[in-house]
Design a binder for these strands. Sequence first.
DNA 1: ATGCACCCTGTAGCAACTACAGGGTCAAGC
DNA 2: GCTTGACCCTGTAGTTGCTACAGGGTGCAT
Lengths: 136, 136
Amino acid sequence: MKIGELSRVTGTNIETIRYYERIGLLPAPDRTAANYRSYGDAHRSRLSFVRHSRELGFTIEEIRSLLDLSDDPARDCGEADRIATAHLEQVEAKIAQLGLLRDELTRIVGRCRGGVAADCRVIEALGDHSRCGSQH
Amino acid sequence: MKIGELSRVTGTNIETIRYYERIGLLPAPDRTAANYRSYGDAHRSRLSFVRHSRELGFTIEEIRSLLDLSDDPARDCGEADRIATAHLEQVEAKIAQLGLLRDELTRIVGRCRGGVAADCRVIEALGDHSRCGSQH
DNA sequence: ATGCACCCTGTAGCAACTACAGGGTCAAGC
DNA sequence: GCTTGACCCTGTAGTTGCTACAGGGTGCAT
Ligand SMILES: [Zn+2]
Ligand SMILES: [Zn+2]
Ligand SMILES: [Zn+2]
Ligand SMILES: [Zn+2]
């Protein structure tokens, strides 16, 4: 299959597929006589793995490690578990941090009573962290 | 005050201060005879506003609008309220999205029972979105 | 033969910084 | 008077993960 079809079946931008090849995340495929990239099923599933992992928030480097691991089926899978667990912890930390942010923003937004900018409590609150209730 | 002191009192990297000046977020300060930047209290409070807003997750462009607003104290503050409210909604949307991610990751991580990569449920789950319970 | 969809390479742009390289300035201490 | 060290300057390039061209080639139908 050519790059356009791979793009359609995996829902991946063509430029992104070429980008992944350039950074060595996907192997360079064979070429047709016209120098077009020609992909097989192994490429398709590898790209699906990459896209799905990206949707789950893994970085390219984490995905690289995960792919290395799955390329070597005899290896112990402990590292995969560690990468995924560490990522989960990061997501949880991010959620907690955004929760604090949301609380501060809710407090700040609720203070606007309309009027001119000079008297606006929103603008005032943005300039002054000392009134915040947390370390967002 | 010179840039190093401004950096210390606001907790901002020196390079970041120069960056803000370059993109027009902070006005260019006076210079000493040695061509050193010389800041006053207005610069300090403007930079604090910028940093605090960044910590709350506002983009540079949003901050630019908020600064424009507070530079013109007679203007109606409705726009500040709109920017802050829109930002709060984005934060809430992000929290919801990360919550879905966390749920999928928890499910995936919990499936690893150790062993070799070929049999790893984590690696399998990363390649296959069809077993996910949501549209993360 | 000409239009159109598709493909190629290579480079530059996005956000919001951060990190140099390669220089200049200034006060203290010997 | 000279060095040492802390500080400052400009300008450019790197980071992450793409995305968007520009400027060309290919393949097939009308
Ligand atoms: Zn207001
Ligand atoms: Zn605050
Ligand atoms: Zn496992
Ligand atoms: Zn999924």
